[in-house]
Design a protein around this nucleic acid. Structure first.
Lengths: 152, 152
DNA sequence: TATGCGATGTAATGTTGTAACGTCCAACGA
DNA sequence: TCGTTGGACGTTACAACATTACATCGCATA
């Protein structure tokens, strides 16, 4: 199996990388965005916009509306700082922002934690299949629900 | 590319096949279930539970609550009569109930229509990757968003 | 200063999904 | 025949997720 290798960021290093990537994309790294990214990055399970809104509200001592969170999450997804997990209606920080490729997410139905696999050959095959069917501008959504090793 | 071949049902034939499959699974083929399946089968785009509830309500001349629709859709998904499209929060009738395998859905962002591909090698590879990572009881969710040939 | 623009705030509303509990009816055994 | 049981469906309420429209704020710059 072909596996994609790259540096995985965490903690402060991840926030740094996110900031760089966002600025690189011509967007601003504001306090609000930093706070939302920081909160998102603390989760190892996919976080809903409302989860994030609650925590950011606490952190700031002032209500932050889901609305604002969605706006920023959308931006993060568009700039590859975060990923949306469709089967969970939730979001994950991208541990390697700036590195553009498709991810495969594994989500445990039991504990909710998500891990991700990078297998470029597999994802390219999915892309190829879609393009062969006449699709363009394809964005694969590849997620696997199941029971993780710890919950086995 | 490996492609999976089988008979695709449509219309009355599809309803027949669905009924057989459901009975086969030890469940009842009730009027309500028949109506919901019939409505679902008329869509070529993924249908939300609420869309279905509205149409079934019309058809019956009596309000059918989303609740009831969800119950039956869950049953259909469990017995492979229908599929949930995670990235659309919506459902599609399975055009070959009784035939158990993973599907790849292509959903057009522009017109919303969904087509499906069966590529057993591809889906097996996804399963294998998840199992290799320690996951069990895996249920792959493979969807591709993009622009279809007609909307290109 | 004014004015334009991106970011965020606020409120309302729309959409999707679940929980809890009640009723109906068919099947079945006493 | 009657009571009991269990599955299917009804009803209501609510929880969770997402968007729309418009207001405000602050900064850059004409």
């Amino acid at each position: 199996m072909a596996v994609h290798h790259h540096h995985e960021h965490a903690g402060a290093s991840l926030a740094q990388a996110a900031e760089s990537a966002l600025v690189e994309a011509g967007e601003q790294w504001t306090d609000m965005r930093a706070d939302i990214f920081a909160v998102l990055a603390t989760f190892e399970k996919p976080a809903s916009a409302y989860d994030i809104a609650d925590l950011v509200s606490q952190k700031r001592g002032k209500r932050v509306a889901p609305n604002s969170v969605y706006r920023i999450l959308d931006l993060f997804v568009a700039t590859n700082l975060a990923r949306r997990v469709e089967s969970a209606n939730a979001y994950l920080a991208n541990s390697h922002p700036g590195c553009l490729h498709d991810c495969i997410f594994l989500i445990c139905d039991s504990c909710g934690t998500a891990t991700h696999i990078d297998d470029d050959i597999l994802t390219m095959n999915v892309r190829a299949a879609a393009e062969h069917a006449g699709f363009a501008e394809v964005r694969p959504v590849i997620e696997v629900r199941g029971k993780c090793a710890d919950c086995g």
